[in-house]
């Protein structure tokens, strides 16, 4: 555990807390993509299956449970409690365009390189982990699509996106660190992490030039 990994995790934690609090306090999930939230829930469920197969540390298990819990809470708030405020007319990204390629890629390019056999738990967990890494890298697209469609985002939503985007960027530095000091690298995670971070670049630029200077995030017409 190095400082970049820890700040990355804390940034991720902050993002999901900001999101739940935003919805809870404003009693509204306007401006938030339910489709991105469904994809994130799928990411957590498929990646953290190893809670049952592989104990790493109390910290690791705790964070995984918090991510799954917060993700479920967000879905509950969006699709049940504050359903009336959900922006479904703008949340029109077709998630099958992400799910189908990501599933195929997860089956083809993973760490096992052996044919899928029914009943092989380790292999299934590994393939699902790979699927989750690929899916996470693009899961924000429906949200970015929604922001571009409405042309604006509430400041609190911008903070959420900033924290969520920074998390993988900090992980990238963590991976450089681990490569130099531990000789550890995971090519699948690195490539997906780069893709994930690059997708946020346009947003990072808007955040720095507008939100930090106290203006609302509004896209140029």
């Amino acid at each position: 555990m190095n400082i970049f990994r820890l700040t990355g995790d804390l940034s991720h934690l902050l993002a999901i807390i900001i999101l739940v609090l935003k919805i809870w306090k404003t009693r509204s999930c306007a401006g938030i993509s339910g489709k991105s939230q469904i994809l994130f829930a799928l990411v957590y469920f498929t990646r953290y299956l190893d809670l049952f197969t592989n104990y790493i540390s109390l910290y690791n298990s705790f964070m995984k449970i918090v991510f799954i819990g917060a993700s479920l809470a967000t879905l509950y708030l969006m699709y049940m409690k504050f359903k009336a405020t959900y922006d479904r007319n703008h949340d029109t990204f077709r998630i099958e365009f992400l799910l189908i390629p990501v599933t195929l890629l997860g089956l083809l390019v993973n760490h096992e390189f052996t044919p899928l056999e029914i009943g092989d738990t380790v292999l299934v967990v590994q393939v699902l982990w790979t699927f989750s890494i690929y899916l996470e890298s693009v899961a924000i697209l429906p949200q970015l699509f929604l922001v571009s469609k409405t042309g604006e985002a509430e400041t609190i939503t911008s903070h959420y996106l900033m924290a969520l985007g920074s998390y993988r960027a900090l992980y990238l530095i963590n991976w450089i660190w681990r490569y130099y000091f531990e000789g550890f690298y995971d090519l699948i995670a690195i490539v997906a992490g780069i893709v994930q971070t690059v997708l946020y670049c346009d947003f990072f630029y808007l955040y720095i030039t507008r939100v930090i200077r106290g203006r609302a995030l509004r896209l140029p017409a």
């Binding site: 190893d50 592989n54 790493i56 690791n60 380790v122 590994q126 963590n174």
Partner: peptide, 10 residues
């Protein structure tokens, strides 16, 4: 199959 990849990251 025994995986040699332990995912300690989140």
């Amino acid at each position: 199959t025994k995986s040699d990849v332990d995912h300690d990251e989140l």
